[in-house]
Every structure is written in C-alpha cells, then in structure tokens.
Design a protein around this nucleic acid. Structure first.
Length: 274
DNA sequence: CCGACAACCTGTGAGC
DNA sequence: TGCTCACAGGTTGTCG
C-alpha cells in the first residue's frame, strides 16, 4: 500500500475534483473489507457535499455536510487499495468494491487484498477507535528529536519495526522506514531505546525529508498503487536500500543486506548504518 | 506495558 | 505447462 506519501498524493489528486462536489450516493459491491462497510453507507452519503478531504496517518477523511446528516467518510487503502475516477457507467472489475458517485464521474475504490477500510463516522460521535489510537504525525511540528528521544526511552524493540508502529508515529511503512534509517545512518536492528539524543535529532529530519521527497516525487508505485487520476508514481526508482539486497550501496563500497524483522523485510547497509 | 507472531486476503514470480 | 511456496506497500488481536 500506500504509505503516508502515497496517501497524501492521492488526497491532493482528489481535492480539486471532489471538494465542494455533491455525492449522489455509494454502491457497495463487497461489504467485507478489513472491517465491514456500513450497510447504510449509500443513505448516509446521498446528498452530502464534500467540504474537505483530510488525512490522518494513512486514513483519508472526507468531510461530508448535509444530506441525512454531517459526518466523515473514512477510507484506508490497506496494502493494495487505490482510488480512481472512472466515467459513470464504467463496468466494475473483479476487485472494485465501492463506488462513490458524483454528478460527473465515479470515484472507485479497488483493493485486491481487501485490507482496506471504508467507514462512516457521524458528526458529534466520539472519535473513531481506529483514529483515536493513532500516534504523532511525522510531518507536524510536534514531531521533534526531543519527542522521539522521550518516546523511545526504555524501548528494547529494534528501531525499524518501532518506526512502523502507528500507535507511536503514523504513516511510516516498510519502504520509508528502511529508507529513513539509511538516510540517518542508523542500523534498523538497534534497540530504539539505545539511540542517543543527537541521533534522534538526526532521525527526525531524515524521516521528514524521506516522506517529503516521496510526496514531491508523486508517491511510489510498486505494484498496486495508482494515483487518483490513474497515473503511476515514480519514487520507487529512487530507493537507496529498499528491495536492493545484494546490490552495491549507493553511498559506499558495501553491499545492501536484507533481514526479516517482525515478518517484514528490512534493507540496510551495514557499513553506513550503526 | 512490551514484544513477537498469526491472521486477514489475492496476486505474482521463482523454482521444480 | 502447471503446481507449490514465499512474499508483497498494513493493521489488529492474542499470547507469553
């Protein structure tokens, strides 16, 4: 899936088409995603106007006003999800699970692995449990070296899987965790609690820069990711270590290595990262 | 509380 | 060609 940059690129692509537009309704073909799609989604959305499209971590939040009542349409793309516009009446393919119908076009949610999520949150209700547990936004001003230093004290877990823990900090997925640590010169195997203050001060901008660069590049596109307008991203070619096991390090004469952490592949250069 | 792991799904590529 | 296996961008729940 989309990590934070891809979701942000998607959001920005959506914005000009969707903001201020009125939703005619929703067609749910597959109610069984990671969580059940609300059976009354069509009734909730019909007649609402999309006042804004926001992002929290990897969740897209469509702020809907009017209709049967204000609320937020929550969409997560999971591992393999995408959103794109198709002309009204376009036949649905195998993994096209939900259509959001506008007057001039349809925004179609497609997700082969069905790890994604489409939910409705009525205005005034307590924050959705999925959102309530989310950690800090890595592109916010609150994400500082001081914060990271304090947040990692006493943590024995390796820093790489910890960076991917959305309860701590949101949006950093498997690709950008490896890339950020390479940029900061920190070994993914190092216990998070044993990273000193100065290196935390270095890691924060490394993460921020990695994510910002990816957003600027238009997001990555490995396999499933598609821009909201159907175009493919292009950050993938710029990966320094991710998916480069056995290849030469871009910075030194060393060789990129691969290891498994928490069931996920990690890539790093043992010569550059300690 | 913390950390490791299985589970949820389908598609793809490698190897036999 | 066709089978099996490992693995893929995420997150939750469970267990020790």
């Amino acid at each position: 899936m989309p990590e934070l940059p891809e979701v942000e690129v998607c959001r920005r692509g959506l914005l000009p088409e969707v903001e201020g537009a009125v939703l005619l309704g929703a067609t749910v073909r597959t109610p069984r995603l990671r969580l059940p799609v609300p059976p009354d989604l069509d009734r909730r959305l019909a007649g609402t106007r999309v006042a804004a499209v926001n992002r929290r971590g990897k969740y897209l939040l469509f702020e809907c006003r009017g209709g049967a009542g204000d609320g937020t349409l929550i969409i997560h793309l999971g591992m393999s999800g995408n959103l794109r516009f198709v002309p009204s009446g376009t036949p649905a393919q195998r993994h096209d699970h939900v259509d959001l119908s506008f007057a001039r076009q349809v925004l179609r949610f497609s997700d082969p692995r069905r790890f994604g999520v489409v939910l409705w949150q009525a205005a005034g209700a307590p924050e959705h449990p999925l959102l309530a547990v989310l950690g800090i936004e890595p592109l916010s001003d609150a994400f500082t070296g001081d914060w990271l230093y304090a947040a990692t004290r006493g943590r024995a877990a390796p820093v790489k899987p910890l960076l991917m823990d959305s309860h701590l900090v949101v949006g950093i997925g498997n690709i950008y965790a490896s890339e950020s640590l390479f940029r900061a010169g920190i070994s993914p195997l190092r216990a998070a609690g044993r990273i000193g203050r100065a290196r935390c001060e270095a890691l924060v901008p490394a993460i921020r820069q990695t994510l910002s660069d990816a957003i600027a590049a238009g997001g990555s596109s490995i396999r499933d990711y598609v821009h909201s307008d159907g175009g493919a991203g292009c950050f993938q070619v710029d990966c320094a270590v991710y998916d480069r096991a056995g290849l030469p390090c871009v910075r030194c004469a060393g060789t990129v290595r691969q290891v498994r952490q928490g069931g996920r592949s990690t890539y790093w250069c043992p010569a550059c990262q300690h």
